[in-house]
Design a protein around this nucleic acid. Structure first.
Length: 485
RNA sequence: GGCGCCGUAGCCAAGUGGUAAGGCAGAGGUCUGCAAAACCUCCAUUCAGCGGUUCGAAUCCGCUCGGCGCCUCCA
């Protein structure tokens, strides 16, 4: 089976055929750096991180570009509020963005271009649009003439007439047509400005992506992604500019991710209902957030709720629990482990269907159950028996493959022991108990059990359970873990 | 007002023509001193409602109701 991707342009799932395989050019709209990022940004970043990882896993040589919009009205306004320079605002929030993305375990794109490093490329593009009559200059600003591009609206499924009927008339609008959008904005005194053939000014929002994607990926490239809200007008405008400039459609496949909702409403700055990535990371391990994101399809909206995140935590913990047997399986023998090809095939098949991480995760969950069963039997077997060796090999292979496949989703990146340890440490801090104190109680209970004083033993266990500490009596003695319920 | 998306069990969520994945919660069982964990079994004759197309529809078409998004900055 080959990879099929839902293309916003056609509204259908299509077989993915790169322009020059195995190379794939992918451009994803990044963020405007004027504030901290919220979970919505995290979802977008995680979705495209998984797409990037999976494309590489599938043998593509991906050139992944994600930009920073580092000049914009919001940045200028923010600078005024904070009484600092606009570029300090940009630098500060680029740093914060990088910290957040690293914390979320995202792979770095190949190139992360900044708009302000590409002014000359933008000017060049704007000039050629002016030269061929697709754009015009008024009072030092340059606008793209939407009417000059008849295909306008093809991405967002609108047409020029209906857009015109719904337009709001702005006061003092100098544009020839209300639909026209700025390629270059004349700057007011005191605003950041660059020299251009039309006087000093700064670029409009949309032109940066056209200029940078063309520079790094060429006139026509494979994939362009971003949040659903960018479809109109941002990506529509990008298509218009780039196409009008080169005569070619700039992008083959347009990919858009759905929103993160809070109480079924879009999470956004303007609604004030957002949770920053930093807030979320204070509560949840990065892979829990990733797991949560991946349990829904990337195009559907997701509701950011406590129960959804708790479910994700519980399931992730189950995987890590199985993976943690790795250590006990890696003794002396140096046999190389091969991955379970049937599991890999199935995984690929599910992911090939428009990156359906929800079904993929469900499938990995069924493999988890299967191997947990083998694990339970294995732990009861006599060592040195033939069956034991066989089961061990089987388990090893399963765990190895599970881990490998999880990692192509950006999951199971931690050492399994560490994953649980973090939660245990956090729990001890939470209940204000040292590890020694806890061990003492566990010993005490073990003694009580040995003396068949079950009443006392159960009481000790119940007390710990109330604190969220779960004791489990295993053949190897009592162990404790965090109760994820 | 225009355009678009969505409505699947108590909750979350896959599934775009072939007879409803999975998770959480719940019930029973194996294991256990009892538990826990793990495993096994069960848990939607039905996919907002009403019509239509079809041998066959959650999936296609129409209408109704409900929710959301875009049309202004937005992942």
């Amino acid at each position: 089976m080959t990879l099929r991707i839902y293309n916003t342009l056609t509204g259908k799932k299509e077989e993915f055929t790169p322009i020059s395989p195995p190379k794939v050019g992918m451009y994803v709209c990044g963020v405007t750096v004027y504030d901290l990022c919220h979970i919505g940004h995290a979802r977008s970043a995680i979705v495209f991180d998984v797409i990037y990882r999976y494309l590489r896993h599938s043998g593509f040589d991906v050139n992944y570009i994600r930009n920073f919009t580092d000049i914009d009205d919001k940045i200028i306004n923010r600078a005024k509020e904070l009484s600092i320079e606009w570029d300090e605002v940009a630098t500060k929030f680029i740093d914060e963005f990088n910290i957040d993305m690293a914390a979320l375990g995202l792979l770095k794109p190949n190139i992360e271009p900044k708009a302000t490093d590409h002014i000359s490329e933008m000017i060049e593009m704007i000039q050629s649009l002016v030269d061929n009559g697709k754009a015009y200059e008024i009072n030092g600003s340059v606008y793209f003439s939407v009417k000059s591009f008849p295909q306008y609206g093809s991405l967002s499924k609108r047409n020029i007439e209906e857009l015109q009927s719904g337009i709001r008339i702005e006061i003092n609008d100098e544009k020839q047509d209300p639909l026209d959008f700025a390629l270059w904005k004349a700057s007011k005194p005191g605003e950041p400005a660059w020299e251009s053939p039309w006087g000093s000014g700064r670029p409009g929002w949309h032109i940066e992506c056209s200029a940078m994607s063309r520079k790094y990926l060429g006139i026509t490239f494979d994939i362009h992604g971003g949040g659903k809200d960018l479809v109109f007008p941002h990506h529509e405008n990008e298509i218009a500019q780039s196409h009008a400039c080169s005569g070619e459609a700039p992008v083959n496949v347009w990919l858009h991710n759905g929103f993160v909702n809070v109480n079924a409403e879009k999470m956004s700055k303007s609604l004030g209902n957002f949770c920053t990535i930093k807030d979320a990371l204070a509560l949840y391990h990065p892979e829990i957030i990733r797991y949560f994101v991946l349990t829904s399809h990337y195009r559907s909206p997701v509701d950011f709720t406590d129960t959804a995140l708790s479910d994700a935590r519980k399931n992730l913990a189950r995987f890590y629990d199985l993976l943690s047997i790795e250590n006990s399986l890696v003794p002396s023998e140096s046999d190389s482990i091969k991955s379970d090809s049937s599991m890999v095939t199935k995984f690929n098949e599910l992911m090939d269907d428009d990156f359906n991480t929800a079904t993929t995760l469900a499938y990995l969950g069924s493999e988890l159950r299967k191997y947990n069963k083998i694990r339970a039997e294995f732990e009861r077997m006599h060592q040195k028996s033939e069956r034991y060796e066989k089961a061990k090999h089987h388990l090893k292979r399963g765990v190895f493959t599970l881990r490998q496949l999880g990692q192509t989703l950006g999951l199971f990146m931690e050492k399994p022991d560490n994953f649980v340890k973090q939660f245990k440490a956090a729990k001890l801090t939470e209940v204000g108990m040292s590890n020694d104190e806890l061990e003492l109680q566990i010993d005490e209970r073990e003694k009580a059990r040995a003396e068949k004083n079950f009443e006392k033993a159960d009481q000790l266990r119940d007390n710990l359970a109330k604190k969220g500490i779960r004791l489990q009596d295993t053949p190897k003695g009592a162990v404790w873990t965090v109760d994820f319920n």
